[in-house]
């Protein structure tokens, strides 16, 4: 290494010639990158500024006269998290299954057709899902709910009495699950397709069956993608407004029973339903619940990041 000359210092190194195209491109990329921070900051500032009056106001001014701001917002937070987790719990295994079928089991033609259909599902507006939830799903599952409360009512989840309309938080969660299915499936499919053939062959050459190969090579490799897909889906389920607002008849309760007629509403649905009739400090109250939702999604995303980064060395990206 003695032959290496000392590196030129910054002062004497010749300045690289700056081409116009490079400069324009780098500046516009910088502006685009900064813009997202500005927008995020603008939203956060609006939320905080508009929430403050509600946080310091007398709870007696709020609609329904809750004991405090937190007493008002807690059932909504619970409903939001509960419905979104139920939706994720139902949709994620299904999404992984569909994605695996498309990427590793289906014949190419069928896989392509299925891929298009999944993408199409993602394009259906949420209000249509809401209508489907009220008009088709709720009446269809109502007899099942009755059966569940009668036979499995001892499980707290299925505690009686069953709702007569079928419009419960479980129905809302099913609708949410159907809504978040396409985006999760699409992301899982993409990462599964990117599993290096080398790793798949390594597993097969060791005498792995197809399923063992998937467990050994495809799923571990796709794990960060699965987590990101789940978080995107969860994010959408947390913030979804119309489908929940249409399906649920809300009540300010905190209850894990999913088949009863009294169900907690979600933050987003509550804002949509209450905003038109709100005045004065109640508007600030609703915006404050929006701030809470903002914070919840932030926390959820941070947890996902942490989960993905925890085993970075083993990710297969190096």
């Amino acid at each position: 290494m003695t032959a290496t000359a000392t590196p030129p210092t910054a002062a004497e190194s010749p300045r690289a010639y700056q081409r116009l195209g490079d400069r324009v491109f780098s500046k516009s990329a910088l502006i685009a990158g900064s813009l997202i921070l500005v927008i995020l900051a603008a939203v956060a500032i609006f939320l905080v500024a508009q929430s403050l009056p509600a946080l310091v106001a007398d709870p007696n001014d709020f609609i329904g006269r809750p004991d405090s701001f937190w007493a008002y917002v807690w059932p909504l937070v619970f409903g939001t998290l509960w419905s979104a987790s139920l939706a994720l719990l139902m949709a994620l295994p299904l999404a992984i299954g569909i994605a695996l079928f498309i990427s590793h089991f289906a014949p190419r033609r069928l896989a392509q057709a299925l891929g298009y259909i999944i993408d199409l599902l993602a394009a259906v507006p949420s209000v249509v899902y809401g209508l489907w939830g009220i008009g088709v799903l709720a009446p269809a599952v109502q007899p099942l709910y009755t059966w569940l409360t009668e036979n499995l009512g001892w499980i707290p989840l299925f505690a009686p009495p069953a709702s007569g309309t079928g419009r419960t938080i479980l129905t809302a969660a099913i609708v949410l699950g159907v809504m978040i299915l396409p985006v999760m499936t699409a992301i899982c499919r993409e990462v599964f397709l990117q599993t290096p053939v080398l790793h798949e062959e390594a597993a097969l050459a060791l005498g792995a069956t197809r399923w063992e190969m998937i467990r050994m090579a495809v799923l571990p490799f796709g794990r960060p993608g699965i987590v990101s897909g789940a978080m995107l889906g969860l994010g959408r389920a947390l913030g979804e407004t119309m489908a929940v607002a249409m399906v649920l008849s809300p009540a300010a309760v905190v209850s894990f029973a999913v088949l009863q007629s009294r169900n907690p509403s979600t933050i987003a649905a509550n804002i949509a339903l209450s905003f038109p009739e709100s005045y004065g400090v109640n508007v600030n109250l609703l915006i404050a619940t929006g701030l809470v939702l903002f914070v919840i999604t932030l926390i959820v995303n941070s947890i996902a990041r942490w989960v993905v980064n925890r085993r970075k060395d083993f990710s297969g990206a190096n």
């Binding site: 290096p196 080398l198 790793h199 062959e201 050459a205 005498g207 792995a208 050994m216 990710s315 297969g316």
Partner: peptide, 19 residues
């Protein structure tokens, strides 16, 4: 599957499981 358990294989590019 049983054949491959008896006849092992090493590939052109090293392919340990990264995960």
């Amino acid at each position: 599957v049983l054949v491959r358990r008896q006849v092992g294989m090493v590939f052109q590019r090293p392919n340990p499981f990264p995960t």
